[in-house]
């Protein structure tokens, strides 16, 4: 008798669970399908395109060529420099903006007059439309005739620098650091403010210096926040496009993978080769992202254990 009822309830249970799982799946499915249709399927089509000989000037002569496009892509030899440019720009901008962001977060964590105003002004670079920011930096700051920086160097007695033509790499890194420092600062400031005041007070009572407290209590506490900041910064910066397209047009070692792909895909007429560039770029981006994030976090973990 009793076994029968338990069997019955468990059947009901299983049934409701199946029903629940079905509901969950039905709720996720629209988002999943939307994503697949607009991102995954086009990527598969890109892979298919990459095996075709297809020139837009000869739209009737499309034929299958296996891996000829990939051979052509590798023979051009612009992938390696683009990979290095991507790694260089991303890692420098991430490191500079995290370090500067930490410094600023510590400064803003104190109580002082106008603290809220200072924070609001400071986050503005991150909110400013990147295209607008790139244009303002290019024409209003770095311009060799009317730029503020040129005027400043001359006023201080130096020779004016042709920033965008002579130092394009530095210009992009400066502009991106400027843009991302506020973002890093906000995340790290949230980390600083989540510290329990009792611990800091206890350290002060025990006679720990400000530096020692920072080094041994605050920094370890901040580690997870730094990790989030680095992760998000890397995701966003790996695909950065606006300042490169607007300020440097890929000159002087700033031709990143995303800009190279843009140049190949939408300036040239060879669809097959452009698609091959697309596929290789995706693979390289994934490799760079994985390697970069892994090695960065390794540094953190080792640093944290010392």
């Amino acid at each position: 008798m009793t076994t029968q009822t338990t069997a019955k309830t468990s059947v009901v249970k299983v049934e409701t669970q199946v029903k629940k799982a079905r509901l969950s799946r039905a709720l996720i499915l629209p988002a999943l399908i939307f994503s697949i249709v607009l991102t995954q399927i086009p990527f598969l089509v890109t892979i298919y395109f990459s095996t075709l000989e297809w020139n837009l000037l000869k739209p009737t002569e499309i034929k299958f060529t296996w891996f000829d496009n990939y051979v052509a892509v590798f023979e051009k030899g612009d992938l390696l420099p683009a990979t290095f440019a991507t790694i260089g720009i991303t890692s420098l901008a991430v490191v500079f903006s995290v370090v500067l962001g930490l410094f600023l977060a510590v400064l803003l964590d104190r109580k002082f007059r106008g603290q809220a105003v200072a924070r609001t002004l400071l986050i503005t670079p991150f909110l400013l439309m990147p295209a607008a920011a790139s244009l303002i930096w290019k024409h209003s700051m770095f311009d060799s005739n009317v730029g503020i920086l040129s005027w400043l160097t001359e006023a201080l007695g130096g020779t004016p620098i042709q920033w965008t033509t002579d130092l394009p790499f530095l210009v992009v890194v400066i502009m991106l650091t400027w843009q991302y420092t506020p973002f890093m600062m906000l995340i790290l400031l949230a980390g600083l403010q989540s510290q329990t005041p009792e611990v800091l007070e206890a350290a002060a009572v025990d006679g720990a210096s400000a530096w020692k407290t920072f080094r041994w209590i605050t920094l370890p506490h901040l580690r997870q926040y730094v990790e989030i900041a680095v992760l998000l910064g890397t995701i966003m910066l790996l695909q950065v496009f606006d300042p490169i397209a607007i300020i440097t047009k890929g000159t002087g070692g700033t031709k990143t993978l995303s800009y190279l792909l843009y140049e190949r895909a939408f300036v040239g007429l060879n669809v097959g080769e452009a698609a091959a560039y697309g596929v290789v770029t995706v693979l390289l981006t994934i490799v760079v992202a994985t390697v970069a994030l892994r090695s960065l976090f390794k540094v953190f973990i080792e640093g944290g254990q010392r």
Partner: peptide, 12 residues
């Protein structure tokens, strides 16, 4: 899908 460079699926 967020890691996928937009340009890669853009051509099709």
């Amino acid at each position: 899908t967020r890691f996928l460079p937009a340009a890669a699926s853009l051509l099709p």
